[in-house]
């Protein structure tokens, strides 16, 4: 800071004293405002720091039921989607089946082509989409038809002896698996 301007008697001029006070007041109010802004910013940015949209894990059934499966089992699950202060509950169809390696996996029944519900055709021993005839193997691998990729595998795990799954939607008509919600 510049030294205070003084008049003939050596006393600081009124202007200078007022300027210092002005700076002090300005600084203090800036400080107080900054402190008060903290809760406002935390409030406004809450959705960025907390999970305000998520899909909860849904229960499929006791894991023992799926130990010895030879054909895919169709199950209806309750999907709970959290959206801010509300949740949507919807029923979705999934298939519990086996990978070629023999481990249990859960497939979404939504066809990766245009979204129809894929069915297990017992006679053909494969999944068939009723809309445009895409076919998939027992593990969901793409066999034929217009589908651009295999059936979509969902995250699943066994917790407290129950098989649970996290339901997701994936973008249709693209060769890669892209989560869209």
């Amino acid at each position: 800071m510049t030294p205070p301007i003084t008049d003939a008697t050596g006393a600081p001029t009124q202007h200078t004293r007022r300027s210092y006070l002005g700076w002090l007041l300005g600084l203090c109010s800036a400080g107080v405002s900054a402190i008060l802004a903290v809760p406002l910013i935390r409030f406004a940015l809450y959705p960025l720091t907390a999970k305000t949209t998520e899909t909860k894990w849904s229960d499929i059934g006791p894991s023992a039921d799926f130990q010895e499966i030879t054909t895919p089992i169709q199950r209806l699950i309750n999907v709970e989607q959290v959206d801010g202060w509300r949740k949507q509950i919807s029923d979705k169809v999934v298939y519990v089946t086996k990978t070629t390696g023999g481990e249990t996996c859960v497939l979404s029944s939504v066809c990766p082509h245009l979204g129809c519900s894929v069915q297990w055709a017992v006679a053909q021993h494969q999944f068939v989409c009723p809309c445009h005839g895409a076919t998939f193997g027992i593990d969901g691998a793409r066999l034929g038809g217009p589908a651009p990729r295999a059936m979509d595998r969902l995250d699943s795990k066994v917790e407290a002896d129950r098989l649970i799954v996290r339901y997701r939607y994936f973008r249709q008509l693209v060769p890669g698996k892209e989560v869209i919600g």
Binding site: L40, F43, T49, A50, W85, R86
Partner: peptide, 20 residues
């Protein structure tokens, strides 16, 4: 049908919500 839920959300979930 939403007013009370959203105020409860502000009070109980949102950071600094109860304070504001």
């Amino acid at each position: 049908d939403h007013a009370h839920t959203t105020v409860a959300y502000i009070m109980k979930q949102v950071s600094a919500g109860s304070f504001l």
